[in-house]
């Protein structure tokens, strides 16, 4: 699951372009700037690599791994960006 702070997003779409598994898309709703913030696709292969969280220039995205759905998680190179410790 990703959380997007809608009003912080400026709509550069870098997260959508650079997602390694192409899991993001523009949402239908508009924010107060009149742009469409990103959201997860309904069927996605998000493995919580947290790339979008790290590259977002407006710090608007937080990645929170789902606890109930078991997927293969990608291990990242840095310790503090490797997902919430369970």
């Amino acid at each position: 699951m990703i959380e997007v702070k809608d009003d912080w997003c400026k709509g550069c779409n870098i997260c959508i372009d650079r997602c390694p598994v192409d899991a993001l898309e523009e949402s239908d709703k508009l924010n107060k700037r009149g742009i469409r913030p990103p959201q997860l696709k309904k069927e996605n292969e998000c493995n919580y690599c947290r790339y979008c969280e790290l590259i977002c220039p407006d710090l608007a995205i937080s990645v929170i791994p789902d606890e109930d759905i078991k997927k293969v998680e990608k291990k990242t190179l840095l310790s503090p960006v490797g997902g919430i410790k369970k």
């Binding site: 710090l59 990645v63 490797g82 997902g83 410790k85």
Partner: peptide
């Protein structure tokens, strides 16, 4: 091991949110 955080927790710690965006 270092305690792991998300961007939101990081923002609360380091960001002056009144100045944002």
């Amino acid at each position: 091991m270092v305690e792991v955080k998300t961007a939101e927790e990081l923002n609360k710690k380091f960001l002056r949110e009144g100045m944002w965006p």
